[in-house]
Write a protein that binds this DNA or RNA. Structure first.
Lengths: 230, 230
DNA sequence: GGCCGTTTTTGAACATGTTCAAAAACTAGC
DNA sequence: GCTAGTTTTTGAACATGTTCAAAAACGGCC
C-alpha cells in the first residue's frame, strides 16, 4: 500500500510519458503499448499502475487543472470587479488548455461518459473538480461587485458550470488563436456583470429567483455521489 | 450506384438489427460481429454497407429524431403560447429518447467528437439536424406570444441549442422517469417565457442586444461547413 | 545468507473495430 | 447461354484496449 520508491518511479515515469505523448501525438496514437514501450516497461505493467487508458487521460486532466489554477492566481490576487476577475480566470483556462486542443475533443468524448472516471462529475475527478470549483468561489468572494446574498451563494456553481460550457465550445473552436472562444469569454464575463446588475432591479427579482430555484431543484442532492454508473 | 433490391434488403436488415440491438443490449454489447451474425451476414459485409459502427449509431440518431418530430406534431398543430409549445416539444423529446437512455451516454460520447458524423454539427447529420431545427422554427412561428423582431429571428437557433443542452442533461439524469429532466423542461420553458417578457422592458434592451450579438459573433459563419475535421 | 509471502513485471491471450484481397453472385451485352 | 465487368459477400488479418497466469524482484524474518 505504501509508496515503494522503485514502483513509484515506474508509475511517475509512465504518467509523464503518457502526458507528453497525449499532448504531442494525440489520443489515438498514444497507445498503451506505445506508452509502455516508451517508458521501457511491458504493456501489462502499464495496466498494473493505471487501470485503464482513461486513467492516464485523467492524469492529464488534473495536470491541466493545476496549470489553470496557477495561471489564475495573479488574477485572483489582484482584486477587481466580478467581470474582470471572471474574464481573467476564464481566459486563463483558454491559455492553460491551449497546448492540448488537438486532444481536447477526445478528452471531452471520454469525459462526458457518465460512468467515466474522467467525467467532471465523477468521484475520481473530485480533486480536479474541487480545484476548479475553488477558483470560481474565489472569483466571487474576492470581487468588489456587490451581490445579493441569494445570488452570492449559488453564483460560483453557476460560473463553474458555465466554464464547462466554455470548455466544450473551445473544443469545437478551430479559429486561429481561439479568437472565437476568447470573444465568448469576454462577452460572457461582461454579460454576467450586466445580468448581476439587472438582477438587482425589483422587476427582475422574480425571474432571478426562478432561475436559482430551477438550478437548485434540478441539481442532484449535493451529498449524493454524482459519479454513479448505470 | 442505384438501389439494387437485394443489396438494399441486406442493408435495411443490418440497420434494423443494429437499432434493435443498440436499444436492447446497449452500445458495447452491440458489436459489429454480433450485428452481422444476427443479420445472417459476414462481418465484412456489415462494413460494406456501413463504413463504421458510428454510422450505425447515426442511423439510430435519425430514427430518434423522426420519433421526436412525430411526437411534437400534435403540440405544434395546437397553437398556444411560446412557453406551452416549447414545453411540449421539449417534453416530447424526453419521451422519444426515453427507450435509449442506457445508450444515450455512449451516443453523446460518440456524437460530441467534432469530426464525428454523429455530431449534431456535422455535414452527415444535416438531415436529422434540419429536422430538429425545424421543430423550433415552428415552435416560435406558431406561437401566440408577441416577440420583438430581433429576438424572433434568433430564438429558434437558441432554443435548439438549449435543446442540445437539455439532452446532455438527460443523459446524466438517473432519476426515475427522468423527473429531473422534466423539471428542467418545465422550468426552462417557463423561464424562456419570463425572459421574453422581461426582454420587452427598456431597461433590459441593452442586455438582450448583448446576448444576441454575442451569440451571433461567436457562431461560425452559417455558410461554413461546421463538421470539419482536425 | 536463505526462506516465504507480497509486490511488481512480463508476455501471451482475448474481444473488438476495421481493412483487404479474393471469392461469389449478379448484370449487361451478345 | 456465355462472357466480361461490376457489385456484393466472405473470412482472414491487423492494431488496440484489456485481462491474466506465471515469473521475477523485493522485503522482512530467522
Amino acid at each position: 500500500m505504501s509508496a515503494t520508491p522503485k514502483s513509484e518511479r515506474t508509475r511517475a515515469h509512465l504518467r509523464e510519458v503518457a502526458i507528453r505523448m497525449l499532448r504531442d501525438v494525440g489520443y489515438e496514437r498514444t497507445t498503451m503499448r506505445a506508452v509502455a514501450a516508451e517508458a521501457g516497461v511491458s504493456t501489462g505493467n502499464a495496466y498494473y499502475h493505471f487501470p485503464s487508458k482513461d486513467a492516464l487521460v485523467q492524469e492529464l486532466y488534473l495536470e491541466v487543472q493545476r496549470e489553470h489554477a496557477e495561471r489564475s492566481a495573479p488574477v485572483l490576487a489582484a482584486g477587481g470587479s466580478l467581470t474582470e476577475r471572471l474574464r481573467g480566470v476564464w481566459a486563463a483556462s483558454v491559455d492553460a488548455f491551449a497546448p492540448f486542443h488537438a486532444f481536447g475533443a477526445e478528452f471531452v468524448s471520454v469525459a462526458i461518459r457518465p460512468g467515466s472516471d474522467a467525467s467532471p462529475f465523477s468521484a475520481a475527478s473530485a480533486t480536479s473538480r474541487d480545484l476548479s470549483r475553488a477558483l470560481f468561489e474565489d472569483v466571487v468572494a474576492g470581487s468588489s461587485t456587490r451581490l445579493p446574498e441569494r445570488l452570492r451563494a449559488q453564483l460560483p456553481e453557476l460560473l463553474w458550470l458555465a466554464h464547462l460550457g466554455i470548455t466544450l465550445f473551445w473544443v469545437y473552436d478551430t479559429s486561429p488563436g481561439f479568437t472565437r472562444t476568447r470573444r465568448l469569454v469576454d462577452g460572457g464575463a461582461a454579460l454576467v456583470g450586466s445580468l448581476v446588475r439587472l438582477a438587482r432591479l425589483p422587476v427582475a427579482r422574480a425571474v432571478v429567483d426562478d432561475v436559482l430555484r430551477l438550478v437548485r431543484d434540478v441539481s442532484p442532492a449535493p451529498t449524493t455521489d454524482r459519479g454513479e454508473r448505470a
